[in-house]
Design a protein around this nucleic acid. Structure first.
Lengths: 250, 250
DNA sequence: CGCGTAAATTAACCTGTGTCATCACGATTG
DNA sequence: CAATCGTGATGACACAGGTTAATTTACGCG
């Protein structure tokens, strides 16, 4: 069941047994990739997309001096570059952040799905639109939050996404990122990320130790980042560690 | 021909005569809206989407203090909230910035299209993914550019988009925005936007006069904003005012 | 045709984050 | 076991952009 986590807990788009089987059948190959490996290069034509099974991946844009801005971080269950199916050519690079296992889905298979199963197609479409919603939350973060807020927002978001993937209990999760990854995510320097992490540690709100993130005060952290998970379109039927924040915007 | 500008010049997704007719037929109502009018509220269920015919619209997220971050600016030809069709509930608000004319498309019509015309569906999907690509360019802008760069990038982007819509000659275009709109777009304060605009004016690179933008040095402006229009997926067959920058990433 | 309000402009001052530099620690490798 | 490298930690200083507040300009309207 490679597609087990795909669209899991996503409001209103549960896959039928049939649809899931069809998607499983569309998978061509399972691959394990080393960390920090570039998979997709901007501007190159693609004929396959990647479903992330294990590990973390990123999408990013480098500036002319080599400074990098991450535009997405992907967790297990994400259809990382599904948008390459309609777009064919991407505007950014894709890479693994940690060791990763991926399922490769040829576009020809997706093509067939769009012909036969409009309902499943719509769910695939939906999945790319969640990525867009996350982009917007990141825009808010970069445009309107200060350094602490940005880090708090990112960690809160990642916590909820990993809960949905069954990889966080709401307070602790493994995240193979280093401080300069956080810097590239939050539009800050690694020096300043270090200062922010120390502050969060000293205030006993959150401890980031590269391989392990421990959120001591989830609600406080969410408040610092003005984090409202509605944009993730997740409904966790069981366990709602951030309680009231779990619901759609009313 | 209300859909005349929709997906115009967009690489590889030209609408067939049939598809365009179908889309025209899907339009329910044409409306003219006053400026600064809120159209969609985050969290409310939608059963229609809006194709922008004239004027400018925005999508935005407010922070807890009322500070606003724009996450998109829409120009004529954009299917502003088409992503509401799969999503049903949006994570942000939508409003007019200027007086605007819009075509309303009921989701029931789109529903029918997804059943009958997979090819057209894919083009609709494509159109929402361009919005996502623009989100990513904005993330880069907010995360990695300084104030001047951000303004330069936004104006360069808007120039190209309006050229594609036939509303800019590559150097001059009407844009009904005020300085604080620019501030909300660029994640800056209106005071600082004012300083940046003065600088661009004094350096004779670009003059922003709220209703009219005049770009004296398009290439220089693009360079300041590290602007590469590849992410817009536009092919202008005629007139390429920014010359070399017009092409897809090689 | 003067009034009222929104927008633009500018100055003075302050602060959050960047820059630069150094050091510590642990893991890997020759 | 010394050397190297990636990562993290920390201090001193600089500056881009924020904040506050006052003034000017533009423009619709009674």
């Amino acid at each position: 069941m490679f597609t087990e986590r795909f669209l899991r807990h996503r409001r209103g788009v549960h896959l039928t047994v049939e649809e899931r089987a069809r998607l499983e059948a569309a998978i061509g190959e399972i691959k394990t990739l080393p960390p920090r490996t570039n998979i997709v290069v901007a501007g190159e034509e693609l004929n396959q997309s990647i479903l992330l099974l294990e590990g973390f991946m990123s999408r990013y844009i480098d500036d002319r001096n080599g400074l990098r801005q991450l535009v997405a971080v992907h967790v297990p269950g994400d259809f990382v570059d599904l948008h390459a199916f309609p777009l064919k050519i991407l505007d950014h690079d894709v890479a693994t952040m940690t060791p990763a296992t991926v399922a490769i889905v040829p576009h020809a298979q997706l093509e067939a799905i769009t012909q036969d199963l409009p309902a499943l197609s719509r769910k695939l479409w939906f999945s790319t639109l969640i990525d867009a919603a996350i982009h917007r939350a990141w825009l808010f973060r970069l445009g309107r939050l200060d350094a602490v807020g940005r880090v708090a927002h990112f960690l809160s978001e990642t916590n909820v996404r990993l809960m949905s993937a069954g990889l966080s209990d709401g307070r602790r999760f493994a995240l193979g990122l280093i401080q300069s990854d956080l810097a590239e995510i939050c539009g800050l320097t690694n020096v300043h990320i270090n200062r922010v992490l120390r502050q969060l540690r000293e205030e006993k709100i959150c401890v980031f130790r590269s391989s392990l993130v421990e959120i001591l005060e989830p609600e406080q952290l969410a408040a610092m980042g003005q984090f409202d998970p509605a944009y993730l379109y997740i409904d966790l039927q069981v366990a709602e560690p951030i309680s009231s924040r779990q619901r759609p915007i009313s």
